[in-house]
Nucleic acid binder design. Structure first.
Lengths: 139, 139
DNA sequence: GATATAATTAATAAAAATTATTATTTAGGA
DNA sequence: TCCTAAATAATAATTTTTATTAATTATATC
């Protein structure tokens, strides 16, 4: 079995089920995938896998920070294994998504990357000053 | 009527309907809003407005670049009026979204912004080299 | 290794979100 | 003002996501 995936589940306090191993392996194989792609890929290994199981596990895998959601304009969210901070090249034609290293990103001007950039978007997630003052209450 | 909104619609070749004016005004008022928020706000002005109309118009307003989708992890997409390139501060507690100027962003280290940054994400949209070579075919 | 128990799963139903259909209305040009 | 294509409201249909439940299973403890 995928020892890396198994250890990762254990390290995050999740039971090691074949479904979870399959889901994580599917994502690992694909790099990034949306729910349907994960489900389809997972079924090749585990044909009895239920779609609801995929949904439920994606949620808990995100909660335990094993996975990361990548929300994308005009597409269903994709999911990736948690890894070093990085950015994405998202193709507006085919929808493909590719990791890029964020480190040397700001030498991008000199055409080192074969990609027609149409739009650059930086999203900063965190906790706003209101919430910081209020504790953890939702509003 | 909202002259600015009316002119904007005309300039983008869309018919000026009260529904569209209402939708754009609602977004303008809110700054950013998801479908439900737009619908709710729009109904205060136009109580007979149909939800399907909101969906359909959001689509055409995005197609004509009058609106921009902001896909967000763990939330429904929000929509904003097209404007100068900028970034967003997205609160993981309350889900609030605030514009920030991208220009002086990289002096951010020195705590000028009252926001606990947990994650910075830069998404670059465009056309990949494959699609560039292939024309406009989808795959 | 066997057992108890809480968590997980498959199957399914239910709910929520989005898109399609259609008859009617309307915006904008002739 | 009239014509026509586009837009709308109402609704149905579809798609996506979540909840329910009985059966199964992972794992901790013996």
């Amino acid at each position: 079995m995928q020892m890396q995936v198994v250890n990762s589940l254990k390290a995050h306090g999740l039971k090691v089920t074949p479904q979870r191993v399959t889901i994580l392996s599917a994502i690992e194989k694909k790099g990034h995938a949306n729910i349907d792609e994960i489900y389809k890929e997972a079924k090749t290994t585990n044909p009895t896998m239920s779609l609801a199981t995929v949904y439920k596990n994606i949620t808990s895998l995100i909660e335990t920070k094993l996975l990361k959601e990548v929300a994308i304009n005009n597409q269903k969210s994709k999911y990736e294994l948690s890894k070093e901070p990085h950015s994405h090249l998202i193709c507006k034609e085919c929808g493909s998504l590719e990791d890029i290293d964020s480190n040397n990103l700001f030498t991008l001007n000199n055409d080192k990357i074969d990609f027609d950039i149409e739009e650059v978007e930086l999203n900063i997630y965190g906790v706003c000053n209101k919430c910081k003052d209020k504790g953890t209450s939702k509003n």
